[in-house]
Design a protein around this nucleic acid. Structure first.
Ligand SMILES: [Zn+2]
Ligand SMILES: [Zn+2]
Ligand SMILES: [Zn+2]
Ligand SMILES: [Zn+2]
Lengths: 143, 143
DNA sequence: CGCTGTTTGACAATCATTCTCAATCGAGCG
DNA sequence: CGCTCGATTGAGAATGATTGTCAAACAGCG
């Protein structure tokens, strides 16, 4: 929660080529940390050009993907297929997203986890993973 | 299950502008009926040009979207954001998809339905909907 | 300082999807 | 039938997100 601290950017990808914590990579991480809902790569890019830390669009995409790989951020797709990103907790969870303002809440559901693996096994599927998002209208957007 | 019978294309969209069952619209519906896994719009288009019933790409997209609107087909997105479509049962369900060959199984989970609405209500979200897909490697693709 | 592998970013290239719009179709009508 | 008019089609252009290119800028190191 301390801005960039603990984001683990300094040690992204414990395997492979250890990424170097450059100015632009930090900037992207900070931008993500400064908002609490999902944003598109272009949003982040705009946000950074508006501020005093311009970062090339290509770099924003590269960094975002690296962060997703590293499990530092969650990525999901809007109705029309655009990728949106959000800084999330490291543990497995799902999202309750406001369809109107984008307010996001992380939720956990052991029952769901159990159910999906059970169903998959039941049908002989292995290496199971799943994607679950809940959409609705949040309290503030209601009235 | 009887090829095109009961696909409801003849009465798509009971509201709005009642769509006319044209040659190309029927062709797309049949193409979808002939496969049992998810296919991209381009796949359908190729499939139709290969056969003796060419249908313009734009029309394929238009028809597919119409069918989705009408709730006749399910659409979901691949990892890289491409839209894929599948003829499905009318009732609410989820998908267990083979990551390798695409084999799809429709599954139901009352528990999940209950959980999502409960969680949403708990956080003051209304007009709740959700998206859940399960991915894995099917039995045949295992060995 | 020079050397070398990494990172960047302006710009071009991809690619799925949508838009345009003139040509074609088809159901109802005289 | 043959005509009319809105619905439909499709070739090709346009859009827009994402990725690829590659030369220039950088960073750690001897
Ligand atoms: Zn809201
Ligand atoms: Zn889960
Ligand atoms: Zn389905
Ligand atoms: Zn399979």
């Amino acid at each position: 929660m301390t801005s960039t601290e603990g984001m683990g950017l300094e040690r992204v990808s414990t395997e492979r080529t250890p990424l170097r914590p450059t100015r632009q990579r930090t900037a992207v991480a900070e931008a993500l940390a400064s908002v609490d809902d999902f944003r598109s790569a272009q949003d982040i890019h705009d946000l950074l050009s508006r501020a005093a830390t311009p970062v090339g669009l290509a770099t924003v995409y590269r960094t975002l993907n690296a962060l997703v790989e590293a499990g530092e951020v969650d990525m999901l797709r809007t109705e029309d297929g655009e990728a949106i990103y959000r800084r999330c907790s490291e543990t497995h969870h799902h999202h309750l997203v406001c369809r109107s303002c984008g307010a996001t809440i992380e939720v956990e559901g052991p029952a769901v986890e159990r159910w999906t693996t059970a169903i998959a096994a039941e049908h002989g599927y292995s290496e199971v993973s799943h994607a679950l998002e809940i959409f609705g209208t949040c309290g503030s957007c209601q009235r």
